[in-house]
C-alpha cells in the first residue's frame, strides 16, 4: 500500500516537473480551465439577478450544487480522470505496451502516469465556489456533513467509473478523443437541480446513468433536504462502478489478445 502511494507521489512529481517546464502555458492552462468551468455558475447568477430562479432553490443553494459538482470534477480530473487521455494517446502512439511491461496493475500505472496539473484550476474553482456559497446558507449540522461526505465519495467513484468506461473505449476505438465530448454533454445535466428536468430525464440521470450523484444528490444532503431516490441513486452508482471496472478489464483483455 505504502509502496503504491510512494509510486503515485513519484508520478505526480514527474507530471508536475514535466508540465512546469513550460511555466507560461502551465499557469495559462490552469486559468483557462477555471474560466471554462465558471460558465454555469455565472449563468446561474445572471438568471437570479434577472428575477428568475430554479424553483425551490435560492441562488446560493444553486451555486452550492454547482460548487459540489465542480469540486468533484476538481478532485477527479487532476488525480485520476487523466487515464482517459493517457490511454487514448498511448494506444494511438503504440506506447500503451510500455505499461504492460511493468510489474504493476495496468490500471494503476495508467493513473500514476496521468496526473493532470492543468485541471488543478477546476479544483481551485470548486473549493472557492463551494466555500463562498456555503458561507451564504445556514450552517449544516454534523449529520448533514456526514451524509454529504459519504455521497461525495460516491460521486468521486462514479467519476472514476466514467473515466474507466471512456478509457476502455479508447483502447478499442483508437484515437477517438470525441468520447470525452459525449461525456461532457451528458454530465452537464448534473450541474442543475434535477427538479428542473422532466420525469423521464430525472429517472435517466438518477437510475440509469448516475449523473445526479455528481452534484445534485450530495448537495441536497448538505442542505438538509435529501432528494427522493437517494438510496436508489447510490445503488445504481455502485453497480455502475462495478460495471465500469469489468468493462475496463474486458477492453484490456481485448487489447492484449489482439495486440492493439
Amino acid at each position: 500500500m505504502m509502496t503504491n502511494f510512494r509510486l503515485y507521489l513519484q508520478g505526480v512529481k514527474v507530471a508536475l516537473s514535466s508540465r512546469m517546464a513550460y511555466r507560461g502555458d502551465f499557469f495559462m492552462s490552469m486559468i483557462i480551465m477555471l474560466l471554462v468551468e465558471m460558465g454555469a455558475p455565472l449563468l446561474t447568477i445572471l438568471i437570479y439577478h434577472n428575477g428568475a430562479s430554479f424553483p425551490g432553490w435560492t441562488m446560493y443553494e444553486a451555486l452550492l450544487l454547482q460548487g459540489v459538482f465542480l469540486l468533484a470534477k476538481g478532485i477527479a480530473f487532476p488525480f485520476f480522470f487523466g487515464i482517459v487521455w493517457n490511454t487514448i494517446g498511448r494506444v494511438q502512439e503504440g506506447t500503451f505496451d510500455l505499461l504492460l511491461i511493468k510489474p504493476k496493475s495496468v490500471l494503476f500505472l495508467a493513473i500514476v502516469t496521468a496526473f493532470d496539473s492543468e485541471d488543478l484550476g477546476k479544483l481551485l474553482g470548486g473549493i472557492t465556489l463551494f466555500a463562498l456559497s456555503l458561507s451564504e446558507i445556514p450552517p449544516p449540522g454534523l449529520w448533514e456533513w456526514l451524509q454529504f461526505a459519504a455521497l461525495f465519495f460516491i460521486a468521486l467513484t462514479t467519476l472514476f467509473g466514467f473515466a474507466l468506461i471512456l478509457a476502455g473505449l479508447g483502447i478499442v476505438w483508437i484515437g477517438n478523443f470525441r468520447v470525452y465530448d459525449i461525456f461532457e454533454s451528458v454530465v452537464n445535466f448534473g450541474k442543475y437541480p434535477a427538479a428542473l428536468f422532466s420525469k423521464s430525464v430525472q429517472t435517466m440521470i438518477t437510475l440509469i446513468i448516475p449523473i445526479a450523484i455528481l452534484g445534485y444528490i450530495p448537495a441536497t444532503a448538505l442542505l438538509g433536504k435529501p432528494a427522493a431516490g437517494t438510496w436508489s441513486a447510490v445503488t445504481v452508482s455502485v453497480v455502475f462502478l462495478l460495471f465500469s471496472l469489468w468493462f475496463w478489464h474486458w477492453m484490456l483483455k481485448k487489447y492484449s489478445s489482439a495486440g492493439g
Binding site: L7, V14, L98
Partner: peptide, 26 residues
C-alpha cells in the same frame, strides 16, 4: 525491454527523473 521506436523516457524532464519513476515502479 528496449524499443527503438517507443521511448520510456519523458520528453520534458531529465532522464534521471524517469529513472526515479522506474525505481518506484520496481
Amino acid at each position: 525491454a528496449v524499443f527503438g521506436q517507443k521511448s520510456q523516457l519523458l520528453w520534458d524532464i531529465p532522464p534521471v527523473d524517469a529513472f526515479y519513476l522506474n525505481k518506484a515502479i520496481y
